[in-house]
Amino acid sequence: MTQKLRILALLLAATSWMCGPPRRPGETSGGRAVLQNKGSDTLVNVAQAWAEEYQTVEPNVAVAVTGGGSGTGIASLINGTVDLANSSRKLKDSEAEQARANGHDPVEFIVGYDALAVYIHNDNPVETLTLEALADIYGEGGSVDEWADLGVEIPGCTSGEMVRVSRQNNSGTYAYFREAVLGNNDYKLGSRDMHGSKDVVDLVERTPCAIGYSGLAYKTDHVKVVCIAKGDDPSDCVVPSVESAIDKSYPVARPLFMYTRGEPEGAVKSYLDWILSDEGQCILLDKGYAPAKPVDCSNPIAGSE
């Protein structure tokens, strides 16, 4: 334990040396407050859009946005180097404890929802899959290893091998898919573990035999999105979309989180309030995610378009 603490102290010392002394949230530097915001790659695009737009709302507050993945954001929250951590998965109990041990009590906010789409190659004739079939494809002990096991033949994929595309094992997307589809069972070994939401879609686009999962916001015209059925009846499926994520009919939609250190106050609180306001939520909707609450975006937002 002392060993761990010492390592942590060393790391803290190193980071605080690099970033200046640890700041209180909302502390001003030269009349401007700078908020550190870090984490999820799923959220990074919209977090950047928020930060930019917030400049026009509150010129005295600058928000510095960094990606790196949900784990990175949470690790920074534990170490106390960020004001807001973005995450596409819920904080684990062990992580919350670690943060509390360092004196940062994490507070959770749901800032939106994201439908996790299952992507296949455009030449793939599959239209629908049940959650059970997905678990058989991805889960340890699952019976589906080849497209023929589903009775599917794909032009350009002569071997019929199913190329499973997944994410690296500490991404929030990986953890959510495991929870929602595999019931926290292990993944089958041998999946191609890509290092980003976009890489998954890129690989599926180029590989006729492939199947992969990634956020709906990364959809392009060069890939096909599968309609997912919750029960056994494939015709009872739901296409992932912002609407089906809002009304929760799509079975693989997940909340997107922001975590603060302690109850937010000052600049952090006003920023979060603004994100959860209609203006902030409309920016999120514009980026292809589902808002946390019903919003009316018929009035064009100043600055966008």
Binding site: K4, I7, L8, L11, G68, G69, S70, G71, T72, I74, A75, I78, N79, E95, Q98, Q168, N169, N170, S171, G190, R192, D193, H195
Partner: peptide, 20 residues
């Protein structure tokens, strides 16, 4: 066959792992 290298594993996973 697709494979995974030692170095690539460290690079892909270390950044998102809680220290210690």
């Amino acid at each position: 066959d697709s494979v995974r290298a030692l170095t690539a594993t460290i690079a892909a996973e270390l950044g998102e792992t809680a220290v210690g």
